[in-house]
Simulated scan of single mutants.
Amino acid sequence: MRNLSQLGCCAFAATALFLTGCQQMINPQKPVTPSVQADNQFQLQGKIGVRTPQQTGSAFFTWVQQQEEFDIELSGILGVGKTQISGTPGQVTLNSAKTGVIQAASAEELLQRATGWQAPISYLVDWVQARPATTSAKLQKDDTQRISQIMEQGWTVDLNYNAQARMPNRLILKQSLENGAENRITMIIENR
């Protein structure tokens, strides 16, 4: 698993912790080969929301990615419920008042320990940069040849853009469940 992908997983882990829910999801496959090589250096601010058949919730986030190292801060309104997630190759740490400190070797392991979830959320590093995480992804493009949808590892990711921007300002991740319901994660990027 690419270590730089740990950030995305941790964002979901913290959001999932914020919601304090547990449910089983599919096991992620490791990325085959990155389809695009990128700098993986960015800073994002915005809001993330999760809706499952059992619960809903949201948090504000700040995400700083420096190659394979990252730092994410999640909080509720007025900074309530602050959660700090950081990672370097081989170590990911989550710290919140609700859970205390949780450490793991990878973001997927951290998510599993913290919430019981299994999901390919490490792909977020690629998805927020408007690219697939693996060569097996199915893509749709808009009229200007920007990726507008990624179907990968059981998830459908819809990407929305402001005007002629090359990077998305909103991602909607959907996972269909057996009973016709779905898990939905909405990520709104307010600043890049």
Rank of each mutant, 00 (worst) to 15 (best):
G49L: 08
S96A: 14
K82E: 08
E152G: 04
R166P: 01
L4S: 02
T83H: 08
Q67T: 09
K138F: 15
A107I: 07
K30Y: 00
S86M: 09
V157C: 13
G46Y: 08
A38C: 03
A14R: 01
F42N: 15
L159I: 09
V64Q: 08
A104H: 07
L44T: 02
G57M: 11
G81H: 06
Q45I: 06
M151R: 15
W117M: 13
N3D: 11
S96E: 08
R146M: 02
E152H: 04
S75W: 11
V32N: 05
I85A: 14
T83A: 14
G49K: 08
T115L: 11
Q55R: 09
Q23C: 14
F42E: 13
D143F: 01
P34A: 06
A105K: 10
L44W: 03
Q129G: 05
T93E: 15
R166I: 07
I147K: 00
P168K: 02
A59F: 05
K30W: 00
G116S: 15
Q84A: 09
G49N: 09
A163M: 04
R146G: 02
Q91H: 05
V32S: 03
G76S: 06
V36R: 09
P28H: 01
I26G: 12
S122H: 06
Q153V: 04
K30A: 07
T56N: 12
V125A: 10
L139W: 07
V64R: 02
A59W: 09
A59E: 08
G76Y: 03
S148C: 13
K138I: 12
I26R: 04
L17R: 04
Y161F: 09
N27K: 06
Q66V: 15
V125I: 11
A137Y: 04
A13I: 14
D39Y: 01
M25F: 09
F70A: 10
C10I: 03
V50E: 15
C22T: 11
G154E: 14
F42Y: 13
T52P: 02
Q55V: 11
K82Y: 03
R166K: 13
Q153T: 06
E73L: 15
P132H: 04
M25Y: 04
M167D: 11
Q6D: 04
P53Q: 14
K141A: 13
P168G: 03
Q66T: 14
Q84H: 15
